[in-house]
Design a protein around this nucleic acid. Structure first.
Lengths: 248, 248
DNA sequence: AGTTGCATCTCGAGC
DNA sequence: GCTCGAGGTGCAACT
């Protein structure tokens, strides 16, 4: 079946108002060929696993990926209304003249079942995608910025380690200030709330226990901004805040 | 254009290897009719907003929703490689014979641009979906379970309030034990780590400050299970753990 | 609009 | 495999 000159990654097949069997065959062959497949129609969805859910009849878009991912989308919201994470297997069958898609996971044991009353579209898309996403403005960028220019935190700050381990987790940047006091820095790429203060507090407490020096460890939260409540909590705990963006 | 007897929510139109103009028209009309639309083909993606990203040429599946959501999927992973949250607008154009989709958001200012070199599929799906998801096994279920049967936490525990406010956030369940001591309970629907211990600690500290009674407030973490490190931290802080599932 | 915390969070890195 | 924390987290509830 040579529809057009072969070009890697350019095979697309779709069916409109397919029979359940035709839809099944297309989805199966698409997944077997390591492609992404889709179906649209009226369906019910049941999920059982880490939690349980049921979803009554409605029109939804189903996407299956060869890595076991399943996504059920309606016409609103960014998040799928139901899903299955990658790692499992898809089973596509016709039962009582209805297309039935099951996505199965083990550890944790989870099943997602989509039963179609009607299918108005089925598609199979082979994907060639070598490109990698290049993302900037992350916490890692903020870290590099500080390591490059430590005085952005405060003059005479000297980083000594990153990801320094404590009994309760790793400290983003560990160093000493101009007076030789130990400093623990927690980085956030965006505005922080009370949770980030609690996180820094945990690390500072752990360091104070582990180092058992006289001088208390300083804790500095570095982020673009901080909420009022978090700032009050921070002050109460004797911690500090420095405003800094991940950019440039 | 009456293709088949009208049935609400059953209108599906797709094109294979459409011209950029035909794809644009289909996507635009689908969105205008409050439908979900899709396109597949070789494209590059650029994002600028809370962070910045670029994605080189590759075959991807684009889904646009009438609420402004945009999702770019490859053939692996549950999460889209690029996206736009709901709330913005889509602009669909043909530039230099290429389909160009821009999804724009304000506050925060964000742009997602998908430029197709080729389009092998375009689809428009009208969606009728009245059903609501029914989900069980959530933290709310765990809360109700405890309020119904407080002795699951410990005999003679008496809940007095839920979501009781403190200066640092709300306590899931607030009550008293058999000795009349104040108890703060933090609930988690799944296995907990150090972050949950820190959260409970914050609330207990706040209560001890605010109540300034002689008797220390008890803090109990209720979850299906707890990691080793979190359990050690919990003990160090004088807090307690009770194993309990959200189920039944 | 801003804040806060849950989520079937997902994902990657480290162990 | 588990643990831990980041994420352009998304999302609802509440102020």
């Amino acid at each position: 079946m040579l529809l057009r000159p072969y070009q890697a990654g350019y095979v697309t097949r779709t069916l409109t108002d397919p029979s359940p069997e035709a839809a099944r065959d297309l989805l199966e062959s698409g997944l077997t060929a390591d492609g992404l497949v889709t179906a649209f129609g009226r369906c019910v969805v049941d999920y059982e696993g880490r939690a349980s859910s049921t979803l009554g009849p409605g029109d939804r878009h189903l996407m299956l990926k060869p890595d076991g991912t399943a996504l059920v989308h309606t016409n609103a919201e960014q998040q799928p209304v139901n899903w299955q994470p990658p790692g499992g297997e898809h089973e596509i069958n016709v039962e009582a003249d209805r297309l039935v898609v099951e996505s199965l996971q083990s550890s944790p044991d989870e099943t997602l079942e989509v039963i179609f009353r009607s299918v108005t579209h089925a598609g199979a898309f082979s994907v060639a995608d070598e490109a990698e996403l290049r993302l900037t403005g992350t916490e890692a960028d903020l870290k590099e910025r500080i390591l490059r220019t430590p005085e952005l935190v405060e003059s005479d700050f000297q980083p000594r380690a990153t990801e320094r381990q404590t009994a309760v987790g790793a400290i983003d940047i560990y160093g000493v200030d101009g007076d030789g006091r130990t400093v623990a820095i927690e980085l956030k790429r965006r505005r922080v709330g009370p949770d980030a203060v609690g996180q820094l507090k945990r690390y500072v407490d752990a360091l104070n226990r582990e180092l058992h020096t006289d001088a208390r460890v300083r804790g500095i939260l570095v982020a673009p901004s901080i909420t009022d409540r978090a700032h009050r909590l921070l002050a109460e705990e004797g911690l500090e805040f420095v405003a800094l963006d991940p950019g440039s």
